[in-house]
Write a protein that binds this DNA or RNA. Sequence first.
DNA 1: TCTGGGGTCCTAGGACCC
DNA 2: TCTGGGGTCCTAGGACCC
Length: 398
Amino acid sequence: MEEDSAIPKVYFHVDLDAFFASVEQLDHPEYRGKPLIVGGIPGDRRAVVSTASYEARKFGVHSAMPIVKAAQLCPHGIFVRGNYQRYQEKSLEVMEIFQNYSPEVIQMSIDEAFLDLTGTSGIFGSAEETAKRLKKEVLEKTGLTVSVGIASTMYVAKIASGLKKPDGLTIVQDGKEEEFMMSLPLEKLWGCGTKTQERLKAAGLKTIKEIHGKSENLLISIFGKGTGSFLYNAVRGNRDMIFGGEAKNHSISSERTFDFDLTDRTSIDTALMELCMNVLYRMHKEHVRSKTVALKIRYEDFTTVSVQQTSEFPVSNADDLYERCKTLFAKKWTAGRGIRLLGIACQNVEDKSVPVQRSLFASADEKKAKVEEAIFAMEDKHPELKIRKARLYSKGAK
DNA sequence: TCTGGGGTCCTAGGACCC
DNA sequence: TCTGGGGTCCTAGGACCC
């Protein structure tokens, strides 16, 4: 093991403020300064809020809230469904700017990233100056504001960036991480959601300070190895992820919540086929394949079941995936119960360049796969030409 | 006011093997 | 014939994140 280098670690966590809503307000001046809700429009039965502008948040609207409720809280709000391609574009613009500040950028999602700024003070000046310059550059080049957290661990930087939104900058000095953590309410503990918070409260631990007072062994005895250790380290600001770690168990999934529960086989099969095409298209674009197919059913009462199966051979084409999904579905489905959501996933995807064992039927399967690839390629070139499985156009499908 | 869609990671239990 | 102990792989479900 190598000793810790003398250079103190410096991490930035950069978070775009109310990202989707901000992009909409940028593109539509008439939305600016108004309560804007992205995620659905009133009347979308089961839609939820994806992002609310700060003006809308004043009414109590927040992410994950049903649109129906948002419309009640904020009846004069502007509601839009959103344009994810556009958000992706803007995200890319911002991420490219980050590259100018650090060779090590870890993008965490469409609207946030960690930057390793360790040892760059000679180039950029102090962390604070650097952050201010970065914020200014992002605003000038993209019209968006970001909030930045700076600390010696990614974990603390992440929490810090969330404290002074929007357009915030929070610096936790090296050595002050623990003190910083202790000053926070329990809700700010990243990775500790409502369930764990409830368990903590049930155990008499209501604050980060109180957790800090317990030994690791005690926390493990109450919460188990994983959660116990996590809590012990998190309240000390110790918890850190490994930079540049291999992405394992990558999966590609698609799911859909239906406006009305499905009960008949025809609509169910159509929905399954649609999900299959979606997943397969994306696997094709990413040049990956998978041997493990998973299926998820959420019933009307929100109980959720899943099945998965790993086969000797990777999924080869849409029919293949569809057949596997139907088999899994038959294994789990309780006929008569209404289905509110269906989802499928291909797990443990691997790059198509790694050699694979071929099945006895490989040549026929490969032929089908080739045809599909050609179709996908054509759809990419001519989005107006939607070549889809004939059954998607059969009655009932839109 | 019933609760989206895309992910990742962890855990517990069963099967199977030596 | 009453039953060890470890390792590994797989699955189902749950927690959490944005």
